[in-house]
């Protein structure tokens, strides 16, 4: 499923400058621990996290993730947003907590 469809279906806010969200999402990785994401996420994964620290963009870039969803109403730090624009990593937000957002996402894209 392409990222744009997920954004639309889950009603996510897109924080980074609008561009076509056509990258293919290969699944999701859900974690708030950067080392865990570094070690275990896969290319094309959509990352769901509470972390808003600029380092999340660095991790997403290194692991070629398809985007980052910030949950529970978190807003990206200014520096984080700037880096995301530079690295062209789509940053999205939702007011839902992890459990519910992931539940809905799972219903959309299933196991992976």
């Amino acid at each position: 499923m392409v990222l744009g469809t997920i954004v639309e279906k889950l009603g996510l806010g897109v924080k980074t400058a609008p561009r076509d969200l056509t990258s293919e999402v290969t699944g999701a990785y859900v974690s708030d621990l950067l080392s865990d994401v570094m070690a275990n996420s896969k290319e094309g994964n959509l990352w769901v996290t509470l972390q808003v620290h600029p380092n999340i963009v660095a991790v997403a870039t290194l692991k070629d993730l398809s985007g980052i969803i910030l949950v529970n109403g978190r807003q990206p730090a200014e520096e984080t947003l700037k880096k995301a624009e530079e690295e062209q990593i789509p940053l999205m937000t939702t007011g839902l907590p992890t459990f519910q957002l992931v539940g809905k996402l799972y219903n959309l894209i299933g196991e992976c």
């Binding site: 708030d32 621990l33 950067l34 509470l50 972390q51 808003v52 620290h53 380092n55 978190r74 730090a77």
Partner: peptide
């Protein structure tokens, strides 16, 4: 909320967000 000066090792312990 979200402002933190915690070092990375603390973040990895689940705090410092």
């Amino acid at each position: 909320p979200g402002f933190s000066t915690a070092p990375d090792w603390i973040r990895e312990l689940g705090f410092g967000a």
